[in-house]
């Protein structure tokens, strides 16, 4: 309940300040437009389409998900949060906020992609749906904990993607592979190894985040 209250506070704050949503929306539109203009009338392969889909997701996440902690640091309200909530409450609240943001952002990206790219055709919808859900959870967890780490740094904008890239690489590579499987129509059983990798990634990141967040949040 306490985490949910923090999430409510963040949602209402976001509705009033548009701290993250505006930058995310602009980035998604600009990124997809640049890809469309650069392709022109060329026909691109399915492999490239699936890869570019996750490139847009990765950089969109980098443009908006750090806001959960950076906005608190920039406004000077980090101390206030430390005085009213335990570290686990703060992490859970911020994670819920980022989960909602990631799912909303990536749903929009997926719909735009499906509408604008003829090559983006999903043949195994269940596999794509599971990849989408598990991949987004991993993305939200990793982005949240990295945002907490970089929030106190001077050059947040540069540090966030640089620090996120090696941590998110296993997730992105596996998600790209699974998306290609879904586009190929590969059967569920043949993708079980890749699915196991991203499920394990999520479990490891959630466990590590809760164990480390106390140290990240204080000092």
């Amino acid at each position: 309940m306490k985490s949910y209250a923090l999430f409510q506070k963040d949602i209402n704050s976001e509705l009033r300040t548009r701290y993250a949503v505006n930058s995310l929306a602009m980035f998604v539109i600009v990124a997809i437009s640049v890809i469309l203009f650069s392709i022109g009338n060329e026909k691109i392969s399915e492999n490239l389409t699936g890869g570019l889909y996750w490139v847009v997701i990765f950089f969109s996440a980098m443009s908006g998900l750090a806001r959960a902690f950076v906005s608190e640091e920039e406004r000077g309200t980090t101390l206030t949060l430390q005085l009213i909530a335990s570290p686990s409450t703060v992490f859970t609240g911020k994670l819920i906020f980022n989960l909602i943001l990631v799912f909303a952002m990536n749903s929009v990206i997926t719909l735009l992609y499906a509408a604008l790219f003829d090559e983006f055709v999903i043949k195994n919808f269940l596999l794509f749906f599971i990849t989408f859900v598990v991949g987004n959870i991993g993305l939200a967890v990793s982005s949240t904990v990295i945002a907490a780490i970089i929030a106190k740094a001077g050059s947040k904008g540069t540090l966030y993607p640089v620090l996120s890239f090696p941590i998110l690489l296993p997730l992105i590579l596996t998600s790209v592979q699974l998306t290609l499987f879904a586009m190929d129509g590969t059967r569920f059983g043949e993708a079980i190894f890749e699915l196991a990798i991203i499920v394990c990634y999520d479990i490891i990141m959630i466990s590590a985040s809760y164990m480390l967040f106390d140290f990240i949040w204080k000092d």
Binding site: K9, N12, S13, R16, T17, R75, G76, T77, L79, T80, Q82, L83, I84, A85, S86
Partner: peptide, 17 residues
């Protein structure tokens, strides 16, 4: 945190509320 009340110049409340 539930036992402590804290006032300081660097304590900031949320401007948008």
């Amino acid at each position: 945190h539930n036992y402590i009340g804290f006032v300081s110049p660097y304590l900031i409340l949320y401007d948008e509320f």
